[in-house]
């Protein structure tokens, strides 16, 4: 097999058989082109590619940092706005409470005055009415006494007796009390 291969290789390439890697005729060519390649890649990378990628990464890092800072800023602003809003709300609530309290107090005062006045009026009216009732009652008692005296005198007269006015009056008064 090896003889076959070697023979075929010799015929095909005209070069020494075996591994082309060990053929020293090729070394200079390979090394020459390899060094050119490496130099070209090095300059492409160090002059163009790597600074550019580093710039892109730095820019992205900067953008991210800026964005985070901006976000922090906005968050702080939002928090301040919320605090202001809360404060305004609390103030308004306190104001409303104060106004309500004042109004209530004013209304209460008016109401108290009105109630007092009304009470006084009612008391006066009640006193008047009482007086009137007392008068009426007194009037009525007198009338009743009169009627009772008259009735008692008439009854006594009818029964044939001589009515003693003083005794009847005393008796009626006595009865009325009892």
């Amino acid at each position: 097999m090896a003889e076959n291969t070697n023979a075929a290789g010799e015929v095909a390439a005209g070069a020494p058989p075996g591994m082309p890697q060990l053929n020293t005729d090729y070394f200079a060519n390979q090394i020459f082109w390899l060094i050119i390649t490496l130099v070209v890649i090095y300059f492409v990378l160090s002059r163009v590619a790597l600074p550019r990628i580093a710039a892109i990464l730095a820019e992205r890092q900067g953008t991210i940092t800026n964005d985070i800072a901006a976000a922090e800023d906005l968050k702080a602003k939002a928090e301040a706005a919320e605090a202001a809003y809360e404060k305004a709300l609390a103030d308004a609530r306190a104001e409303a409470q104060r106004i309500a309290g004042e109004t209530k107090a004013a209304i209460q005062a008016d109401l108290d005055v009105a109630i007092e006045k009304a009470d006084a009026e009612i008391a006066a009216k009640a006193a008047e009415s009482e007086k009137a009732i007392a008068e009426i009652r007194a009037g009525a008692q007198d009338a009743v006494k009169e009627v009772a005296k008259d009735a008692a005198q008439d009854i006594v007269a009818l029964m044939g007796g001589k009515a003693d006015a003083k005794a009847i009056t005393a008796a009626v008064n006595d009865r009325m009390k009892g």
């Binding site: 090896a2 291969t5 070697n6 591994m19 060990l22």
Partner: peptide, 9 residues
């Protein structure tokens, strides 16, 4: 590599 050398070189 030694095997290759023995085979081909």
């Amino acid at each position: 590599l030694v095997a290759l050398l023995l085979m081909f070189a």
